[in-house]
């Protein structure tokens, strides 16, 4: 039959030669191969002590960012929850009271904001959907393993960026040193 790709190789089943039938040469060949591997560099990464370098575009654990003045950026518009293919995000919106202007940037804010890390597929669509540049997937953190399922539901306590100018994520908004100084003086 004509082969379509013209790359087909014709194989013949030859009778075994004496060396092949004796089997021992093949065994020694195999043994020498495994022995070579015995002395090779090991591929293992001893995990907790050693970690692999993350890719710069790695999508890891979410963070809810603050703006330059330390106010939460999220306005609880719900676009991230709509965009989320895994329906991992839930939130409750609330109105900003008087005197809370230094806490929340917009008049409407998320009273509670939860991401279920067991549902999340770390696609990053929430990050793309956000109009306020509030949610980011960090490139250097993963959601660590836990014993209980409800520990995987991350609330605002674990999602919102801590109020520290030094605590800058690799991605998202980077504070310039001047901005950081300003923020520090405001917080003091």
């Amino acid at each position: 039959m004509q082969s379509l790709s013209n790359r087909a190789k014709k194989l013949e089943k030859k009778p075994f030669t004496l060396a092949e039938r004796a089997y021992l040469p093949a065994i020694f060949q195999g043994l020498s191969i495994t022995m070579r591997h015995f002395f090779m560099k090991k591929a293992t990464i001893r995990y907790p002590e050693e970690t692999r370098p993350f890719s710069p575009v790695f999508r890891g654990l979410h963070v809810l960012k603050r703006d330059e003045q330390g106010r939460e950026r999220c306005t609880a518009c719900g676009l991230c929850a709509v965009a989320c293919p895994a329906e991992a995000i839930t939130m409750v919106a609330g109105e900003r009271k008087k005197g809370e202007q230094n806490l929340y940037r917009e008049e409407k804010y998320a009273v509670s904001y939860e991401i279920n890390m067991l549902r999340c597929i770390f696609c990053g669509l929430c990050e793309e959907a956000c109009p306020k540049a509030a949610i980011y997937l960090q490139a250097d953190k993963m959601a660590p393993p836990r014993y209980e399922r409800d520990e995987f539901i991350y609330g605002k306590d674990r999602l919102v960026e801590p109020v520290s100018p030094d605590n800058r994520s690799k991605r998202g908004i980077q504070l310039t040193p001047e901005q950081a100084d300003k923020l520090r003086s405001q917080l003091a």
Partner: peptide
């Protein structure tokens, strides 16, 4: 350990 070394791993450590 020997199995691991022959397979480019480090084995129980």
């Amino acid at each position: 350990v020997i199995a691991a070394f022959l397979q480019d791993r480090v084995g129980p450590d």
